[in-house]
Amino acid sequence: MAANIIETSGLTRSYGDICALKPLDLRVAEGEWLSVMGHSGSGKSTLLNIMGGLDRPSGGSLRVGEEDLLALTEDGLARFRRDYVGIIFQQHHLVPYLSAVENVMLAQYFHSVPDEAEARSALERVGLGHRLKNRPGELSGGEQQRVCIARAIINSPKLLLGDEPTGNLDHKSTLMIMELLRELRAEERFTVIMVTHNQEVATWGDRTIYLDDGVLVREERNEQGES
């Protein structure tokens, strides 16, 4: 059993009166692919954002890798996100007036310095070698999401977070994206945490947890994912 990359205990998050996350104990092993399911408003995004350092918990403890996220300053948190985390959202959040390769280079720029050759080869890896110079508006939904994947992995994160990345895609594109993520994980050995509504998508993971109203209600291992 590999070491845990994430350990939480009593982790909570509340927005005023609303308790989006009730005290949660969770461990994620290094290299694991964890699927997170639940109804709308059950706290999935809240949990994901907290683990990615985009949001701060209200209480409890949270360790990711070597870092105690509750103890980090704003600068420390920014550095943590830069060095540790890649995120893919349902909405692609690409800069509309930059080309695919420039969008990837932007992520390099915020991390360190841009390197066009490296950005190109990342896009080639996600099968977009022929659409380097196209802007997001000229790409299909599946292609846009692949640009997002290239952007998310360009800085070699240890943790890849997805918040319903296939939510807007048809079945075929969804399968292509999941296949691609599986390939990349095999090469790069990052840990995946994937929020989804879709039972079929969830089975691509090693394990699925179910949230309901901010509480972890169920957890199951997936046969298919453990291949």
Binding site: H111, S112, S156
Partner: peptide, 14 residues
């Protein structure tokens, strides 16, 4: 070999 690390070293030097 790893791009992110290479760029980080470069950025630090700059």
């Amino acid at each position: 070999r790893q791009g992110a690390q290479r760029r980080k070293m470069l950025a630090a030097a700059i």
